[in-house]
Design a protein around this nucleic acid. Structure first.
Lengths: 348, 348
DNA sequence: CTGAAAGCGCTAACAT
DNA sequence: ATGTTAGCGCTTTCAG
């Protein structure tokens, strides 16, 4: 292994000079600098990250806690992870992956041993057991998700309550009076996963405000479960004419499931999803959706953490506003619904 | 921060004694040991991993290079990742995630800066540009996947050629004479991704050996693409009566796509997939499959790397034998096919 | 503008 | 069985 000493000797300077050339933390004459850089190039020197870390007490590694839990839609999680890794690199940070089956213990160990400078926490629950620990930790952290109490934390999240409300409002505006909610797998709600909980609550509240009745059905992502859930949604006495889908895995089955019940999208049922844009575009017909900005969430989380690492004070809560994009699954619903309910003369 | 010196002082011993209590690398009297341990507990001491790394020249971190490329089925990749992280912990190793858009450069940087003790490489291509670099690196590496030339490498992989052959043989034994192959997305073959390439080659070769004709169609994972691919498979003059599916994303659409062409599984078309067991069990009907042992691949890779880190000589190539599990998608095909083609008397 | 030397926290000879 | 001490490779005072 070739060290900073080798470079210094080769360039005929002190090790500190080499160091300063690298960090730029003090002026170096052009001559010396280029001589050092040349030596570095010739010898193929790479600074030893661990040694630097030990010297400055900073590792430039952040931990990413991704509890891969039951009912999670892995592709979506993975895109957050990917966004995190990418954003991290822009800050010169590396990512240590913790698929924390050990949850709190894992965090404590990694934190105590000073392996990382900070933590990024995914899959947050309303009363997440990791939260109290995060508050105590020497290292800063950022949560992607919003627990019930956010005091003393830094959180980034889509405003899921507002997202659900946007869906409801869009459908209510189109004249729908009874809306079904096709939710995440049951396990997700049972854990009180923050985003799922908030979405459901936001949905209920918005429906209430708009004087709309609703049916809520959680579902697993497989074919059969979605078909059963769809049946459940249309079993009641109410005329369900619209659906809000908050389940990425189920997305692909929705149209077929409704079809099996003799209902077409969007002619008989309007559908709005909460999911990444790409997924909404892949269904047939493409679904109107409130975008879940996974990439942005990951990026923002890293930016915030990087800020905290640099000693900056950052926004404690970043709530991204929902954006609803209309696509074919609600196409023409508005006019048609009105036509159904109101005499043509009245609308003209 | 509380260091080993604090502990030593508190326990009234030398720092080395504390160190030896921790590492167990030399005998310590029970009395001293318990005194030290008590001090550790009281002070809440955690050894500083970075400092240790710097001292012993070993980080206990391995890099996991996961190029998240086009056409990859993320859930499957993610399970390998997850298996890797889990297995790594059993060896006291942490995992640094590299979703290497920078490919070779990323590897070189991480390697040069001695951030990690070794490399785990996923998504291997037949002529992977990372391979030459891996051969030169100071750190050992293990590939999950098998490039064209494996000399000087350590690879773990499912024997995809044999896997494809197992599928073909199973179907050929059941009397099928023309088999369709529903493959990975085109991009995957264009990159010459090793597992996809080998599977296709294995399929063709096996079909040839059995005197069976075949049609090969790559496909994206979405609804439409799969339907189109299915049409393509059944367009020709041959009577395609069986399908080998090597595309996890497409799995869920296969039955419906065939149905749309007026064909039932398994009555009209037998289907065999190459995929993780769990996925084969979730289709309807459940698909006969050659299991893709993602967890085992991840685990083995880590075990091998850990072995190399300990200076052991390890098996250069671990090829897992394929295992075919029969499920409903080929149920009864055997007898029915025979009945169709051979007079009942002959089979009795 | 540049050198020399004292750490960072831990490990592993070398002592006793 | 335990203590002393010289590193690991780099950064950063303190001195020119």
């Amino acid at each position: 292994m070739i060290t900073i000493v080798d470079v210094a000797r080769h360039a005929g300077v002190a090790t500190s000079t080499v160091s300063y050339v690298l960090t730029g933390k003090r002026p170096i004459s052009a001559a010396t600098r280029s001589r050092v850089l040349e030596s570095i190039r010739v010898l193929g020197y790479h600074p030893h990250v661990g040694a630097r870390a030990s010297a400055i007490g900073r590792t430039n590694v952040v931990a990413l806690a991704v509890p891969l839990r039951d009912g999670q839609h892995v592709p979506v999680v993975m895109r957050v992870v990917s966004a995190v890794v990418t954003a991290a690199r822009h800050h010169g940070l590396n990512v240590l992956l913790m698929t924390a089956d050990r949850g709190v213990d894992g965090l404590r160990t990694v934190a105590g041993s000073a392996q990382v400078d900070g933590f990024l926490v995914l899959d947050v629950e309303m009363n997440d057991e990791r939260v109290p620990l995060l508050r105590q930790l020497a290292q800063p952290s950022v949560l992607v998700g919003r627990p019930a109490v956010t005091a003393g934390l830094t959180c980034v999240d889509l405003d899921f309550e507002a997202a659900a409300a946007a869906c409801v409002n869009h459908l209510a505006d189109a004249g729908h009076r009874h809306i079904g909610f096709l939710g995440c797998p049951m396990a997700v709600y049972q854990r009180n996963t923050a985003f799922a909980h908030r979405t459901m609550v936001g949905f209920s509240a918005a429906a209430m405000r708009r004087g709309i009745t609703s049916t809520i059905v959680p579902t697993a992502g497989d074919h059969q479960s979605v078909f059963k859930a769809a049946q459940a949604l249309f079993r009641g006495p109410q005329a369900t004419t619209a659906l809000v889908v908050h389940n990425e895995a189920a997305l692909g089955w929705v149209t077929a499931a409704l079809r099996a019940l003799g209902r077409k999208v969007p002619e008989d049922v309007s559908v709005v999803a909460i999911c990444p844009d790409e997924l909404a575009e892949q269904t047939s017909p493409p679904f109107t959706s409130v975008r879940l900005p996974v990439e942005e969430l990951g990026r923002r989380a890293v930016d915030l953490l990087a800020g905290k690492l640099d000693g900056k004070t950052v926004e404690p809560l970043t709530l991204l506003a929902p954006k609803l994009v209309e696509r074919a699954s609600t196409a023409g619903t508005h006019s048609r619904t009105l036509i159904r309910r109101v005499p043509p003369a009245a609308t003209a």
